[in-house]
Amino acid sequence: MLSKAAIKELNEIRQKYPDASAALLPALYIAQREFGYLGADAYEAVSDALGVPRAIARGVGTFYAMYKHKPMGRHIVQLCTNVSCMILGAEKLSDFLKNKYGLETGGTTPDKRFSLVIMECIGACGTAPAMLVDDDFYENLTEKYIEEILEKYK
């Protein structure tokens, strides 16, 4: 079940579209926020709220890379490794995350503080290598800088 606030938010978003089903992507974002990730409960809640069959909701949800299908850490480190970042050393940074924080691609630290998601391009190529932690951009990354950044996220 979605919270009352979430249902209200969804109803407002719903008004932006001529069809309820068009609100599916935003609804999945809301459900992901509410449930932490998109599991059966989350899909059922969205399906009930929008009248979209739940198998379809899940089909759509699993198509997009930014929806999560398992529990994640409190903060999601989203490191870009596409060409511009790669040629400026992104792979070394991913090794660093692994060695220093035990963060494997797609994995979560045992204390549930961080999860690591390897991103395709995040549009920060001019300041590569770059990453997003939750909704915040961090650019011109170095190992030291990453250490500083992650300190901010508890």
Partner: peptide, 25 residues
């Protein structure tokens, strides 16, 4: 399932080379 039967009980899950057909569960 979706377009004729109207049950919409199965769908393609994931995308690209990982695509596969699944019921909701």
């Amino acid at each position: 399932c979706e377009g004729v039967q109207g049950a919409s009980a199965i769908d393609v899950i994931s995308r690209g080379g990982h695509s596969h057909i699944e019921p909701f569960s």
